[in-house]
Design a protein around this nucleic acid. Sequence first.
DNA 1: GAACCGCCGTTACAAACCGTTACAAATCGT
DNA 2: ACGATTTGTAACGGTTTGTAACGGCGGTTC
Lengths: 245, 245
Amino acid sequence: MTMQATDIRTTQTASSYAPMFMAASGGDHGIDIEAIREHVQVRRCKHVAGQSIYHAGQPFHAIYLVHAGSYKICELADDGREQVSGFRMRGDLMGVESIGLKAYASDVIALEGSEAWELPYPAVLRACLHVPELHAHLTSALAAEIRCDRSWMLMFGTLAAERRVAAFLLDVAARYARMGYSAKHFILRMSRIDMASFLALKHETVSRALSHLHDMSYIDVQRREVRVLDVNGLRSMAGMSAALN
Amino acid sequence: MTMQATDIRTTQTASSYAPMFMAASGGDHGIDIEAIREHVQVRRCKHVAGQSIYHAGQPFHAIYLVHAGSYKICELADDGREQVSGFRMRGDLMGVESIGLKAYASDVIALEGSEAWELPYPAVLRACLHVPELHAHLTSALAAEIRCDRSWMLMFGTLAAERRVAAFLLDVAARYARMGYSAKHFILRMSRIDMASFLALKHETVSRALSHLHDMSYIDVQRREVRVLDVNGLRSMAGMSAALN
DNA sequence: GAACCGCCGTTACAAACCGTTACAAATCGT
DNA sequence: ACGATTTGTAACGGTTTGTAACGGCGGTTC
């Protein structure tokens, strides 16, 4: 059960921020947040686990930049089916897929104590007029999001269950590495159920796959804590797909 | 598309959802081609079946607008795996996912006698300066492409093989309908193998699913010729309500 | 703190689904 | 007409799922 983001607290904007923000997975583009903040009133929104930033169908008014924690993107069907289409971490943009619509197309739900910066879209457009590079950045971010989804389509369509799990771990590891953390030892921030939804598997299958990767000494896994023991083993299992980075 | 009483979505926004998994299509971009042609030198490119417009890795220089026929978009892994990530028909844009890159990220291959209009990207950017709406169109097109891929993920992640085939048929039918052709009787332009790749199935499974849909009198299918006999049957199988028309 | 509860994660076993393999028929290209 | 390609059908086997049971963990209540 998800909660409505009714108790978002608006705080003063932070003074400093890391210069580089990588987009989810496809991301070789960096959003220049300082340039944005000169023209856009940024609101910092904190969320607890299970709280949603926005739901599909709510009026589209802003895009969001993840500042801390993790969020999951959920696609919904009218008959109740649900699909996690991705996870977002620090530096990732959220909501860009709804640009051009009146309402958001997906749900975004916080996985834990997280914070996202709200960038009202009209203001972003105005900022694009003053900072020409910003528009290129935004377009590149959209294109990168497409490539990200395409990479997962390639993975879903061509890899068996265990290989998908291996590819997922490598992707998570790569993202932690880009953020300056260890790629060999990390904590998964999502439940097995969310992982399973994202990988188009059942959560029991994910558990079995992780256990098997453990048995083969590719990883050391204990609940959400993962230690990568054999990167090349994982890579060969994931089809050497560097496209996911 | 029915909504439950508790559904927060409004009727207006519901119509902006892709009614079916639209990954097969690029959506309705509504590109104003006449506005473009005032500023961009458009080259008309004809292709025979199997011919590629561009391959992954080739320098990115232009985007393409499908004028006639069909194209398939292929994602490639370095170990040879291949995934059809979508089909494009008249009015669809191709190549936008590579904006911001030096090289194209996918292959695009013609399915039959087809024609695409080449729009050199630098010229498109210049045209955006003269025609402000064009930039919004381009951004919307990119966002729409993301939503198409997300619909695919929802479909693939939540529907069993036969249901995916049913959803695919409905999507194709809807596309033909939008182009002014019959939604009840059409010719599939792609092979079973391409269909299977797109649906993350094997071509035998696609054949079996089509035969079964035939046995249930939902469709009449003979090789690539399809007649829809029971739209509501198909819709219920694809996880959609029968209300939509 | 202790007992309780709900959720998450793991494992075992059985069942269902889909992929694999094989082969034949239909269609297409030359 | 001929061979190559595409498509359809079937039997079999493997992968994934369904079901159930169990333990761990965190939060709540008393």
